[in-house]
Write a protein that binds this DNA or RNA. Structure first.
Lengths: 359, 359
DNA sequence: TTGTAGGCGTTATCAA
DNA sequence: TTGATAACGCCTACAA
């Protein structure tokens, strides 16, 4: 009792019980789901005692007993990607509403960090896992699946790995992009993507692009994928070559995600190529897209909905853990925001070169 | 053994002990810090058994017994703010390196959410708390402090609340901004800030601005603060009025943070005001700043260092919990990146209107 | 409506 | 070098 408080001291249920002069069961009931069953008096006594002592139930002890940690884990490949953050925001909101807390782990696209984080999440006995991570499923991830933890894959599926998937309707996104470019008079399209091996959504987009190009005699197509961390220097050449080849026509660049859009915008700026004369359309909406030149046309993903759907999918499996249920796929439609970057200057199009919208 | 696995099943230390034919104490030692004390044989037996059963120590039980959750909490006012995310990234890295995990809570600038999250963090018995949140310290926050949990305030101090603080050297930031503007030939500065009541760093910046203006006879100054969520519509008028008043001179706008920069950039675009003719300088570096017009000049905060310093501060107090130690303040210097937005077009300045840097 | 007793998975203390 | 046993703080029967 004469401790010097070596670390933070937390009141326990027993201390509250003593302070209130009741049994710890009653205190437990008060803070659990059975507050109703206690008499007015008792409730008041406990409330007062708890307040006096600054008592907070210990979630560790709770989880230990009931086996329910009330924790959802989320694996994010790159926390600095605004898209990931936006989805994460939706995930967190949904978790809160359902009484769960979210434990977010950023892997920085590093498999080693991913494994570490998965071990960590396992040690906290998370009840569900939202994954937005790279390439091959690790041993640790398979362990989660095997052992019955509900999983949801965000934006990308994992090869040879069954789980619910929530994300964009990639085929439709590509279709909308191509249709828009074509409608605006562009007839030669360069599709740029990050390495497709790392994410199925990239693969799906690329595949659809090639498929469409094969079926549209009026359009020319070309696709490249490159690693933005190490191969950015290749980009100027790729673009220059494309423009040279397409000099007789109306060229446009389609960016597979927000990172690509950012990088391409830098290259075009360096080369003093005005947006619009070369069309530019990016998948993923970014807050600054309307600020660059005449504005960059984008396809926005409904990030909030995607995040919420992921949690819903998780909870559904949590409530009825019948493993039989086949994996579900939920795909959302993108929203097109036309801006000046897909408005050809030599046409009499009606598009306002400076869009007036606000973030 | 013939269970239908109603929920995820996790092997326990006892199961591993049985499987290996040893006592659970030994297994505990193996996974704790005393693996050395075990014989080679024993280590091998346990490793094999654990692997066979897919055993992971239960962090809940661990935390319960030892009182150490290995968890650091972080309160973020707005997770969608790139600055916050960048700092958070540094915090997380540092935590990992020190064997702690990070529990991030986004408050969306909502005091109610902040209280909820603080209760949550308390219930998980976090050992330290990094705070980047609004205005007045809540009762919950004071509870943390009173009860001895180490706290670090990020970017903003809280009124009437003692704790370590890590952030930008705000006075110097303002000085650097004003010096740069003045050197570039601007002589009338409009300072725009989000509401200062919510964050001490805003207050410090504003105060220094006014102080400098009072002491520089060659400069005209004017400051406004406004709530970007509800008062954005006031901004065009403020800027128009400023430009009208400053029509005879060389006007510049200084933005108190990244959000303000974004909003101001939109307004200037809407009003077709070219950057440079009106100077624009923003505190906080953003990935798109070099893309807008001739590029927006910024003062970057060393986000990673700030995040790491916060954790270091925490751990220091965790290791020697002598409450006597007075609060420490760590301030970092910003880095100026000059771009076209602070290059007056009518001068013979050498500044390249389009900066060539990459993100 | 309230209280008692046992156990959740782990570590710490003691003994062998 | 190992093992038995008692906590840690809470919840959930069961009993009163």
């Amino acid at each position: 009792m004469s401790e010097s408080i070596p670390a933070a001291h937390h009141a326990t249920i027993l201390e509250v019980a003593k302070e209130a002069g009741v049994s710890k069961t009653s205190v437990s009931r008060y803070f659990g789901d059975e507050r109703e069953r206690l008499s007015r008096q008792m409730q008041a006594r406990i409330a007062a005692a708890a307040k006096r002592l600054g008592y907070r139930p210990n979630q560790m002890a709770r989880g230990l007993k009931g086996g329910r940690s009330q924790l959802i884990g989320m694996l994010v490949a790159d926390i600095r990607n605004p898209f990931s953050v936006a989805v994460m925001h939706g995930v967190e909101q949904a978790c809160r509403e359902k009484g769960y807390s979210l434990l977010v782990c950023n892997t920085d696209n590093d498999p080693a960090q991913e494994r570490d984080h998965l071990n960590l999440l396992a040690s906290y006995r998370i009840e569900g896992l939202v994954i937005n991570a790279a390439g091959q499923p690790s041993r640790e991830l398979r362990a989660f699946a095997r052992q019955g933890t509900p999983l949801v894959l965000l934006d990308r599926l994992l090869s040879d790995f069954e789980a619910d998937v929530v994300g964009l309707d990639n085929a439709q996104a590509i279709d909308m992009a191509i249709d828009h470019l074509q409608h605006q008079g562009y007839d030669d399209v360069l599709y740029l993507s990050e390495p497709v091996a790392q994410a199925s959504s990239r693969q799906a987009r690329l595949q659809r692009f090639q498929q469409r190009m094969a079926n549209e005699p009026a359009l020319n197509g070309e696709a490249h994928s490159l690693d933005l961390d190490n191969e950015t220097q290749r980009l100027p050449d790729i673009i220059t070559a494309f423009l040279a080849r397409a000099s007789h026509s109306a060229p446009a660049i389609l960016c597979g995600n927000g990172n690509v859009t950012l990088t391409v915008a830098h290259v075009l700026q360096d080369q003093r190529i005005p947006l619009g004369s070369v069309g530019l359309l990016g998948i993923d909406e970014l807050e600054w897209c309307s600020l660059v030149g005449p504005g960059i046309t984008t396809l926005a993903q409904p990030t909030d909905a995607i995040g919420r759907a992921a949690v819903q999918s998780l909870l559904q499996r949590l409530e009825k853990p019948q493993r039989q249920t086949p994996p579900r796929r939920t795909h959302y439609q993108p929203r097109l925001t036309p801006r000046g970057s897909t408005c050809r200057p030599d046409t009499t199009n009606q598009c306002d070169p400076v869009s007036q919208e606000r973030p």
